[in-house]
Write a protein that binds this DNA or RNA. Sequence first.
DNA 1: ATGCCTTTGTGAACGCGTGCACAAAGATTG
DNA 2: CAATCTTTGTGCACGCGTTCACAAAGGCAT
Lengths: 216, 216
Amino acid sequence: MPTVSSEELAAAAGVNSAKLRKDFSYLGSYGTRGVGYDVEYLVYQISRELGLTQDWPVVIVGIGNLGAALANYGGFASRGFRVAALIDADPAMAGKPVAGIPVQHTDELESIIRDNGVSIGVIATPAGAAQQVCDRLVAAGVTSILNFAPTVLSVPDGVDVRKVDLSIELQILAFHEQRKAGEEATAGAAAVQAAAREETSTDQGPDGDVPAVMPA
Amino acid sequence: MPTVSSEELAAAAGVNSAKLRKDFSYLGSYGTRGVGYDVEYLVYQISRELGLTQDWPVVIVGIGNLGAALANYGGFASRGFRVAALIDADPAMAGKPVAGIPVQHTDELESIIRDNGVSIGVIATPAGAAQQVCDRLVAAGVTSILNFAPTVLSVPDGVDVRKVDLSIELQILAFHEQRKAGEEATAGAAAVQAAAREETSTDQGPDGDVPAVMPA
DNA sequence: ATGCCTTTGTGAACGCGTGCACAAAGATTG
DNA sequence: CAATCTTTGTGCACGCGTTCACAAAGGCAT
């Protein structure tokens, strides 16, 4: 039986082994003292807890470059996601296959959601259409939305929204890049990013982790 | 002179006003007691600290759906980024304009980087080509890389890499979705995501923030 | 079977970040 | 110019998460 110790795992991940053990303990997944964790069992437990063993039907709305890129993205299937439908407002797109899936018109949105029991929707439309699409998704029963459009969506309670801003990551890189260059005047620089984050977005979305460097 | 108090700002952002003031204090940007912060000055200071006032030339390598989507993305210009060049390995793409910028062949990579003083590169190639492109970018002088390819890149010290995995955000939504549904057996669920994070990626990339719920 | 060795699971201490609360500072009004 | 009022900047305390350290547990060799 192949096993791993918390020590090995921690070293590989660059974290503290005690924390890792404590985290695992919340799972209820018990390791064996003197031996370690059964790899297969551990992988299964974590996968299940994360929802990777379930099948999540997903719709993508807005089949432009980004929507097409998402439809073609290989990582989805392996993580338990299944693209149930591609939806676009352009009638000319209807029926055209993208990533092997025929695009359907926005008119079908509600019925697609209901027929497939979709609870997760991806919005890759232009900013102008995003809120409207969002409202329709929610009304049809979607309770989780991944938003790529550069708009903050408002949704009723009980609906989760995560906003992906492709430029935020670039901004974080630029921030570091700037600090590499100018070590002189940039003395009391850092903790700003936290403040900036507070200013721009109202909560939803991924927090780019810039290490909170405390200036001298 | 238009001003804001830390109290107003904090309320709008949903955070504590004291923390906000403390964060601002690290900037050295002083507010005026009894009045608040000069909005214009504050915006400028934060922008400058974040590198938004600088002009960052960026190259995008791999002009498939994703690369094209990035090239068309409006958010870049407003954040100080300028797409200096689009690069693709397919000779058939060469010269074809995407988002108004002609695609150039991979052969030109090194000279483009050098001529434009590019220090930030975006990789939107298939996984197989990513490491090779990365190596060439680094060799040509790029010191920050935004990686959309589903591979972990290895780079020498001094080079920053951020990996964007489009399915991670979906996974976080699915995680919450699962918890919404099954409140029964999912008693001692939560802190797993931290552990999972430790397992999968070795540091680089955005940490999707799932609130660390402690089980009873 | 007994003792030793390895590794888990966790109680307790430490450290850091957040939030409270107040003194200092400046603006404003009479 | 003095008194008052508002808001900043920050010392201090609290709380939470991380880390340390060790006892309990199980495997394995003799």
